[in-house]
């Protein structure tokens, strides 16, 4: 067991977990942030994507013991951050995914949305090729991706209902 001091969604969280645990396990099974999903066990699907200092990173391949100095953003962090910035409703990217039907089973979406979020932070007007490239580490089995692209484009336009 080791006590990890993690910065998660703006909170500093101290949590004891076995030393060999991944960030994904600590987030899900110790802190209770189950929004980050586990789809493939070993870095092949992107469902566990979180942002480390704003950069899309796979929580299933990150040891909790190596991320104590990074600011971790999970899917649960977006809406509160949006509200803290004076926004209403959900985060614009989350909202766009809902409006565009980009969420079917929803299992890949926390990771997908965080990848999209990181893309838009860096590049507010991505081309369709840039969107495809940026999301190419997040497998979706439901949509065929089209409605996901539409959601990213809609979020980029900043439209919200």
């Amino acid at each position: 067991m080791r006590v990890f001091r993690l910065q998660v969604n703006g909170d500093t969280v101290e949590v004891a977990a076995p030393e060999h645990w991944t960030l994904l396990e600590v987030l899900r099974y110790k802190i209770g942030l189950t929004g980050s999903k586990q789809g493939c066990d070993k870095g092949d699907c992107g469902a566990c994507t979180v942002l480390l200092d704003g950069v899309p990173t796979l929580a299933c391949l990150s040891l909790a013991a190596t991320v104590e100095t990074s600011a971790i953003t999970t899917i649960e962090g977006l809406l509160p951050a949006h509200r803290a910035n004076g926004g209403e409703g959900a985060d614009p990217v989350q909202d766009a995914f809902d409006r565009c039907g980009a969420l079917q089973c929803g299992f890949c979406q926390p990771g997908m949305i965080l990848s999209a979020k990181a893309l838009l932070a860096k590049n507010p007007n991505p081309t369709s090729q840039e969107i495809k490239q940026s999301l190419s580490g997040n497998l979706c089995r439901c949509t065929g991706y089209t409605q996901i692209y539409e959601a990213v484009v809609l979020a980029a336009k900043g439209e919200q209902v």
């Binding site: 080791r2 030393e19 060999h20 991944t22 396990e25 066990d41 070993k42 299933c60 013991a65």
Partner: peptide, 12 residues
Amino acid sequence: MLRLPKFEVKNP
């Protein structure tokens, strides 16, 4: 979940 083996982690 596919498990990592048990080990200790050093952060030099």
